[in-house]
């Protein structure tokens, strides 16, 4: 029985672009180019490494997103994933992290899985809680924020580098893991992979296919509501302290006035 790996990926607005909110305070995806979240590339990379090591594995990439999110799937397929699942429904617009995890969990169950791999967070929402929510919904163990991961027999083992300690963790499959940007540079899609991706299957699902009611997700179903958003004020010029004998004192005064000391 082959190892079934599902990688959750997100199609995000390019972080180098000029990102802003749309009128309903959701992320504006039209005015800026989207791409596969860089942090999810690490997830794809680790999933592919695990698949290569096991020799008998199937990697499915899963995303929830608008039509353009196919781009993210295509990139993951070019990198070497075997097939893709795209959950796309107009009613999903505005869904929060709780709703997204519900959709992902249903889609993962439908696909069948032994191991779910996620990135450490998305580069737009940066919530970073999807792996934990998924493990709760799927009822399987979670091993998150790994900088090294591997599967041996029926267990997934990994290393989590914390500020104070390094933890070696393991869990029996099926399980959910998330990997950090320290897990190893993601590969570039090879030209061969790019051409092969064209022929790989992409399954499209909507909320009906997953048995989710429209009011459980979307902007209305979100547990959080964004009332307003204000753009970050432009950076102001800093204060320059000139050392004319009193430099140290002035510096200390400045820091004290800003309540740094």
């Amino acid at each position: 029985m082959s190892l079934r790996i599902v990688v959750c990926v997100k199609y995000v607005p390019d972080a180098t672009g000029d990102r802003r909110f749309a009128d309903d305070n959701t992320t504006d995806r039209d005015s800026v180019d989207g791409l596969l979240s860089e942090l999810d590339e690490y997830g794809v990379e680790q999933a592919l490494k695990i698949a290569e090591a096991s020799g008998d594995a199937e990697v499915t990439v899963l995303t929830v997103g608008p039509d353009d999110a196919k781009d993210a799937l295509r990139k993951a397929l070019s990198m070497g994933a075997d097939k893709a699942v795209h959950v796309n429904d107009d009613d999903i617009h505005g869904t929060d992290v709780i709703g997204t995890s519900a959709i992902l969990a249903k889609a993962i169950e439908k696909t069948g899985f032994d191991l779910v791999v996620c990135g450490m967070a998305s580069t737009d929402g940066t919530m970073g809680v999807i792996p934990a929510l998924l493990s709760e919904r799927l009822g399987v163990p979670q091993v998150t924020l790994l900088s090294e991961v591997g599967v041996e027999g029926g267990t997934v083992k990994g290393r989590r580098d914390g500020d104070a300690a390094t933890e070696l963790l393991e869990a029996s499959l099926p399980a959910v893991v998330s990997v950090t940007d320290q897990s190893g540079e993601a590969r570039y899609p090879s030209f061969k992979g790019i051409m092969a991706a064209k022929k790989k299957p992409v399954e499209s699902l909507d909320l009906d296919d997953l048995g989710i009611e429209a009011d459980e997700v979307g902007l209305a179903g979100a547990w959080t509501a964004v009332d307003s958003a204000t753009a970050r004020p432009a950076r102001t010029a800093g204060t320059i302290v000139k050392d004319e004998g009193e430099g140290g004192k002035q510096l200390a005064e400045f820091l004290a006035s800003q309540k740094f000391i």
């Binding site: 295509r74 570039y188 899609p189 991706a197 064209k198």
Partner: peptide, 14 residues
């Protein structure tokens, strides 16, 4: 084609 775009983008990024 999307594949040609991908060839270009991959090389440009690398």
């Amino acid at each position: 084609t999307p594949e040609q775009e991908a060839v270009r983008r991959t090389l440009r990024e690398l």
